[in-house]
Design a protein around this nucleic acid. Structure first.
Lengths: 198, 198, 198, 198
DNA sequence: TATGAATGAGCGTTCATTCAT
DNA sequence: AATGAATGAACGCTCATTCAT
């Protein structure tokens, strides 16, 4: 959970955070934690309820089927920002890409990020969100490079490949690094790609 | 799956492939298909037994616990080739990497490849194998580039980044492409990287 | 169900049929439809509330227990007419019974009739109502035959049997015909019975 | 359970009645009793298992879904005898029908008979069986009357009505009598019908 | 009267695993 | 090695009912 997700302990007006709404939030909080930790299939609804400190039946009041919890999580707690302006540094592809890497168009907690990759295989709505993120990453990389290197120096195809490569590296960083234990330095990759386009 | 996929280069007589041994193989065949399709957690042992056409009890004779099936699958049906020679094309980093992409150091059926990525989150032995693949990809890429570009032209660090990037793209190609629907052309990436090292 | 079915002969102003009272009626309407369709046990109160478009809690305001809905339905929407005069055609037992068949002493919608037979096994109040209907049918048949055939031609016992037979056929027609798909023509049976008493 | 159903305590060769088969029988025994008593919908599988003294899971080993228990019961423990010869008493329709009433073409325990009527509303396979019984009763009654009264005295239509009436009375006797508390004497009805055909 | 969140026992079902043969 | 009945804990889910507002 990052600064954008609805947390009851967040500062600001605590309005409407009592009564019914609270339980639903606590259920999602618990599910987020557990799905990220053990995976959707291996997490029993009873455990979600226990962690959320709500009776089991209430979970199904808000989410008629278990899968609805996951869908709600993805719907409400991940946001792929689309079409935002890219901050390009004219003439400097490397720094432009670096900035991009620092501000991924994904508003989601670390837990939600894990869920996004973990459950993409199994559940369409999650896969769709991941696909959207991928597309956005490619689009932004392409756009950023176009801005940084306005002269069509290097044909478009090469620029496209560069964008796809950078997107691949960013997703790799988000996902596989944790699994494989191999780190990758996005800044260095940005530099590499910039060189190749020079 | 079939006799051609797992270890085509394995020497030795194919003995013991009749009678009893057959059941074990059929169990693994079935599990491979089902784990790839629906995931380990969502596949009941009873379904494996049914698809393998063996009685349920026999499955537990060969694999006392369900997880042992997955472990056996990874142990016996994936092989990360280590330290093999890389076919480098001296002076041509692009073609060298392309060759690498064409012959991944992973001997495994498409189904086993899916399993490798799918279950890496949950099961240590799978994760270890995936990590090994990642390491091998990086190592080979590095080695290939060293061979192709013997002059330490471009510092080592840059070469390291290039290797890691290429490895990331290859894994992305193996895994995320299916999920996100975005293809990536490894040859073009090879070309890109070669340029950046020129 | 609608304003014509339950008690078309009930006198009195139709007052109180707005506002709050409406909810109660809609609940009973919904329950009638659902109990007839799927049976009492298989119909959740939540579904009744949904079909009635009332909140779940309100249902329990009017009917503290689920069974009360069924009891109210039977109480308020079935009426076994007792002791009404039978229109006999003197000397013509066949036509007399035919008339009886055409005007059963049961004021209830088709749905309520199904409920009456369906739930008789399980719930005493329903069984009692069905028993009452049966008794009334026998009584009327007996009385009709006595009127039609005033000379005690044929002993009383035979007349009693004829009445019971006709009642059985009428109930069979109401209930089993739908289940078994075999129709029976009450007029023809009336004719048959009249012959046997001649 | 009547003399035809498979009971372990039945005399005769006790072969194959050990091991697994016993549990299945005990489950059906328990279900028969409970379904007859409280109805299918109101009988939890856990109660069946408890009464049968088997673990709950075993019930689902033999009957994957609850409804399969009911279907098996109807399939294996009711038999509508079809096409058997009718013992007619030539010239005596009354006694012929009486004999028919005494030997219904239904082999089933009293409990199964209740189930047949109780659950006919809800479950197709039960309804089919009941419909078959109804058809057989009509067919036999017709055939018996044809045999007893070979001269086409009384047109065929009348004979058909007589058959249907008698069948209706027999089913009424089996089912509704218990619910309504009104008895009907099949012999007397047979007599009545015979008179009407004379 | 009206509302829907809350509650928890219980349901049908699944499933990994054991075991006697 | 082979078999499938047996076991019981746990699962996702349902549901009548309660309750605070």
């Amino acid at each position: 959970m990052d600064q954008t997700s609805p947390h009851p302990d967040e500062p600001g007006p605590p309005a409407k955070e009592f009564a019914g709404g609270d339980s639903r939030t606590r259920i999602l909080d618990a599910a987020e934690e557990l799905f990220a930790g053990g995976g959707y299939a291996a997490t029993p609804t009873s455990l979600i309820a226990k962690l959320a400190k709500v009776p089991k039946g209430l979970l199904f009041h808000y989410f008629p089927r278990k899968i609805d919890v996951l869908v709600a999580l993805v719907d409400e707690r991940t946001l792929v920002e689309e079409g935002r302006e890219v901050e390009a540094v004219p003439g400097d592809a490397a720094r432009t890409l670096s900035r991009l890497a620092r501000r991924l168009p994904l508003r989601a907690s670390p837990a939600m990020r894990r869920i996004l990759f973990r459950e993409a295989d199994t559940h369409g709505s999650v896969r769709e969100r991941l696909g959207r993120l991928n597309g956005e990453l490619i689009g932004r990389s392409r756009f950023a490079l176009e801005l940084a290197l306005p002269g069509a120096r290097g044909d478009r195809a090469r620029l496209e490949v560069a964008a796809a490569t950078f997107a691949a590296v960013l997703l790799y960083q988000e996902n596989l690094c944790q699994l494989t234990g191999h780190q990758i330095d996005a800044d260095a990759v940005a530099d590499l790609i910039a060189h190749s386009l020079a």
